[in-house]
Design a protein around this nucleic acid. Structure first.
Length: 577
DNA sequence: GCCGTTTTCGGCCCGACTGTTTTCAGTCG
């Protein structure tokens, strides 16, 4: 069997390993930085790096890093990695992931105490570390405690959980009398699909009292650092696990710089500052400084970008993914917003595995101001989800038609989430599909058939005249299940050819397709449906997470199907493919 | 190692906090 080419994530991880091993070895800083940037470039690329003619087309990838990538794609161990692994135990990479332990420390623990793994570090006597120059009792105990607590299954928060916790913390900060302004920052503000830790920023004339109140709040489980302008604490996550939170505080007049600095991304900030340096300006979280001068505070982000000749870049685009070039020419897209959505095209009811009824879901959609709603329950072969037999589908169709008569506020359509069977055929015959208003096709079984077979399977389904969109095209479940092997670039090409849309599933543990893939699809001229896949009334509100991801894909209103007003959506349905 | 609207060579973002130090390295974001 042919081995699948490495994914962007796998390539990026391999480059990260090179980075960490080089750091431990003590390689020249800028050489390491170059590999680091190449790793980020690979991770952020929308298409498949393995399928590129030459990886050198990627930013920050030159002769050497392109060679490494090509080796990995073609199944060879790159020379630089081989060399590093011969020299340094690979298990030290894990040691550097411990909080407070970086590559320098890991390198010294290895060279001076023969520590090569987290387990060995945990078994150490603090006195042994304390005996090393520059390490005291406190550092020794912290390191060992971190090693004992270390959990390999490093989970990141899903966007809905992170949002819930973040909004609660923000409310606390905003309600403090010393707070003038406060916002969420970091990856949560950029609306990344998962969030590692939470960042908050605040403007206050009395940072000390705000910082003290924050560390003393009832939700704080532990204090990591406590200064007057910076506080790091831990709070409880959804499963009781520890979540790191940083709060940064500045004077109100410098709030714009602070908010920008802690919104990131790191890569975006680095490029912005490099551009500034070329104009003789230094940027920090305290403002803009003409070379050598004191920083001039910047109260708003808009002002900061304007000071560098750029239009305002929304947080979702701050990834060093071409936003600077677009902002320079004032060509940033007008990003889609949640209120642009006119309907949800993929929701379930209790006919299959949903909790709501046709009418309760309709009423929830009316409350959101939608103009239309499409019911897409599972098809017959998906027994575990109570898939509908043709008879029950007819019964449901009748109920949807009746309910549609009852509600003047909303148009109700009856569709189906039809299984794409292993051979690419659909789970209902054409004469049944022809009776439906809208068909979403999806894979729910036989995930491990290999990339070629899976790609062909889904392409075949796209060629059905009834299939209007493909739901959760890669099948991943965040924190639980990797995507099945499939060539997304070939799916995009077939979607364009067959005039089939692709779904951006808004469920917080799916968010499938990924932002980079959605962006590639849009660039290819493929239209996107952002659907919640709601299984109860409350889940209709997941739309905001799907829209967040669409924004990170540079989507504007016109790139989506379900931003169409009812009249146009109905016309689109009747026109066929 | 990568990159180019002063550069194909000489630069490469910036600062807070901690611990162990009397001036700073390491880590983190």
């Amino acid at each position: 069997m042919q081995k699948n080419p490495p994914t962007n994530a796998e390539l990026s991880r391999a480059l990260e390993t090179v980075v960490t091993l080089m750091e431990i070895r003590g390689d020249e800083h800028y050489r390491v930085l170059a590999y680091q940037r190449a790793a980020e470039s690979v991770a952020n690329y929308g298409g498949s790096v393995s399928e590129m003619a030459s990886p050198k087309e990627l930013p920050h990838v030159g002769q050497a890093t392109a060679g490494v990538i090509t080796d990995l794609v073609e199944g060879r161990t790159p020379g630089v990695l081989e060399e590093l692994m011969a020299e340094i135990p690979r298990s030290l990479v894990e040691v550097t992931r411990l909080p407070g332990v970086g590559p320098r420390t890991a390198g010294r623990l290895w060279k001076e105490l023969d520590v090569t793994s987290v387990e060995q570090l945990a078994a150490l006597d603090p006195k042994e570390i304390g005996g090393l120059k520059g390490f005291g009792k406190k550092s020794a105990e912290k390191m060992i405690a971190a090693a004992e607590k270390y959990d390999v299954t490093e989970r990141r928060l899903l966007l809905d959980d992170a949002t819930a916790i973040g909004e609660r913390l923000l409310e606390f900060v905003r309600s403090h009398p010393a707070t003038k302004r406060a916002d969420l920052a970091g990856s949560l503000r950029r609306r990344k699909e998962t969030v590692g830790d939470l960042d908050l920023v605040a403007a206050s004339g009395d940072g000390k009292s705000l910082a003290n109140a924050f560390v003393g709040a009832e939700f704080v489980r532990g204090v990591v650092a406590h200064g007057e302008t910076k506080v790091s604490v831990q709070v409880a996550g959804p499963d009781g696990e520890a979540v790191d939170v940083d709060l940064r505080i500045v004077e109100p007049e410098a709030y714009g710089s602070l908010l920008h600095h802690f919104t990131g991304s790191q890569a975006h900030n680095v490029v912005l500052r490099e551009r500034a340096v070329k104009r003789g300006i230094n940027i920090s979280e305290y403002g803009l400084a003409r070379s050598g001068g004191e920083p001039q505070p910047v109260a708003s982000e808009k002002e900061l970008y304007a000071g560098l000749g750029l239009s305002y870049i929304p947080p979702e685009l701050r990834e060093d993914g071409g936003e600077f070039e677009a902002a320079e020419r004032d060509e940033l897209p007008h990003l889609v917003q949640t209120q642009d959505i006119r309907g949800d095209l993929h929701v379930h009811t209790n006919y299959s595995d949903g909790k709501g009824t046709v009418r309760s879901m309709a009423e929830a959609a009316i409350a959101l101001g939608y103009e239309y709603l499409v019911f897409c329950d599972h098809s017959q072969s998906l027994r575990v989800a109570n898939g509908l037999s043709p008879e029950r589908l007819k019964q449901k169709l009748k109920e949807v038609r009746e309910a549609d008569e009852e509600y003047s506020e909303i148009k109700l359509y009856c569709g189906s989430e039809v299984d794409i069977l292993k051979d690419g055929t659909l789970d209902y015959t054409d004469d049944i599909l022809a009776e439906l208003d809208f068909v979403v096709a999806a894979v729910h079984t036989s995930f491990n058939i290999g990339e070629e077979a899976m790609t062909e399977r889904i392409r075949r389904a796209m060629n059905s005249e009834f299939v209007r969109t493909v739901a959760h095209p890669t099948g991943r479940i965040l924190n639980r299940r990797d995507p099945y092997a499939v060539s997304v670039s070939r799916l995009i090409e077939e979607a364009r050819r067959t005039n089939t849309a692709l779904e951006l599933n808004a469920y917080p543990d799916r968010l499938d397709l990924k932002a980079e893939q959605v962006r590639t699809a849009i660039q290819a001229g493929v239209r996107i449906t952002v659907d919640t896949d709601a299984h109860d009334e409350g889940a209709l509100s997941f739309m905001r997470f799907g829209i967040a991801q669409a924004r990170r894909a540079w989507a504007s209103k016109g790139d989506l199907i379900n931003t169409l007003p009812l009249f146009d959506f109905d016309k689109y349905l009747r026109a066929g493919k």
